[in-house]
């Protein structure tokens, strides 16, 4: 709550034209937003570009901000939109290029290697990190958004509901379904002791 009050005070100062107040918000949330968007695009360069877009949009819309909801909810809502849009765009480009390369409309999902088929295969780098990254990427966008906001950004159900523009009950449902999908994805790795 103390943090929220300070965010509201900083935004009020920004609306009055205080550029240093916005810089404080930028420093405070920069890393969080980059990591949040990274979970959608899986590319740090793109995540940084999109984070800039987010802060630019926040700054341009500073006069329309009303402190009915926490500043972080507003910030994450804009960041979520940017991240999801970029993820959808990236997926479309990927499918289009694959179709161009193969010359046929193959089911692209079947061409992505499924490490679950051979759980004993040694993965390069941190195996658990790769498994978790793949598991999170496999979630539908709303479940993924709810899980990421809850698990990684530490938002409350109320704040997540503000970001997603839905009820707290809907947020709990998304998180519940997301967990069930994660469990289904990771069970083979749990059985092999990789998780």
């Amino acid at each position: 709550m103390g943090s929220q009050n300070s965010d509201l005070d900083l935004m009020a100062a920004v609306q009055r034209g205080d550029a240093s107040a916005f810089e404080q918000l930028l420093v405070k949330y920069n890393k969080n937003i980059v990591n949040f968007i990274y979970k959608f695009v899986n590319n740090i360069g793109e995540a940084e570009e999109l984070a800039q877009e987010v802060f630019l949009k926040i700054y341009m819309a500073r006069h329309s901000y009303e402190p009915r909801a926490p500043f972080s909810s507003w910030l994450y809502r804009i960041a979520a939109n940017e991240g999801i849009k970029a993820a959808v765009k990236g997926r479309r480009l990927f499918f289009r290029s694959r179709r161009r390369d193969t010359g046929e409309h193959e089911n692209i999902l079947e061409s992505i290697p499924d490490v679950r088929q051979n759980a004993e295969h040694t993965l390069a780098g941190n195996e658990t990190a790769q498994i978790v990254q793949k598991a999170i990427s496999s979630l539908p966008k709303k479940e993924k958004l709810a899980i990421v906001l809850r698990r990684y950004q530490g938002l409350s159900y109320e704040e997540i509901a503000e970001v997603m523009n839905c009820t707290e009950g809907a947020v709990k449902t998304y998180i519940h379904r997301g967990k069930l999908r994660l469990r289904e994805f990771m069970l083979p790795y749990i059985a092999k002791g990789l998780i």
Binding site: N30, K31, K39, A129, I131, V132
Partner: peptide, 19 residues
């Protein structure tokens, strides 16, 4: 175990000059 394992998702460090 799943919920704890999610902590393994790689965290990235933004470029020093991003701000």
């Amino acid at each position: 175990r799943i919920w704890q394992a999610l902590s393994a998702y790689p965290s990235v460090e933004p470029s020093p000059n991003l701000i």
